[in-house]
C-alpha cells in the first residue's frame, strides 16, 4: 500500500503544540514535515501561515529567536 500521511496539518494540531510550549516557525515546520503530511513545501508554508494568522498566538523572544505560544 502507498504510504499515506500520518500527520495532519490542522489548526487543532498547531494549537496543541503551541499550548504545550513556545515554538519557532522552524520548530513547527519540523512537526509537519512534507514527507509526513503529504503536502508540498508551498502548501505547508501557505497553510501554516493561514493557521498562525487565525490563531494569532502570543510572541516572545527566546535566545534571540521569535517563538509563538498560546495559553489555554
Amino acid at each position: 500500500t502507498p504510504s499515506s500521511s500520518d500527520v495532519q496539518l490542522t489548526e487543532e494540531a498547531v494549537r496543541r503544540y503551541l499550548i504545550r510550549k513556545p515554538m519557532t516557525t522552524k520548530d513547527l515546520l519540523k512537526k509537519f514535515q512534507t514527507k509526513r503530511t503529504g503536502l508540498s513545501s508551498e502548501q505547508t508554508v501557505n497553510v501554516l501561515a493561514q493557521i498562525l494568522k487565525r490563531l494569532n498566538p502570543e510572541r516572545k523572544n527566546v535566545n534571540d529567536k521569535m517563538h509563538f505560544y498560546l495559553t489555554e
Binding site: T24, T25, K26, L29, S41, V45, L48, L52, K53
Partner: peptide, 20 residues
C-alpha cells in the same frame, strides 16, 4: 534536506512578517 527546511522557514517568516 535542511536547506529546504531553511527555505520554508524563511518563506513562512516572510508571510507572517507581512501580517503581524
Amino acid at each position: 534536506s535542511s536547506s529546504e527546511a531553511d527555505e520554508m522557514a524563511a518563506a513562512l517568516d516572510l508571510e507572517l512578517n507581512d501580517f503581524m
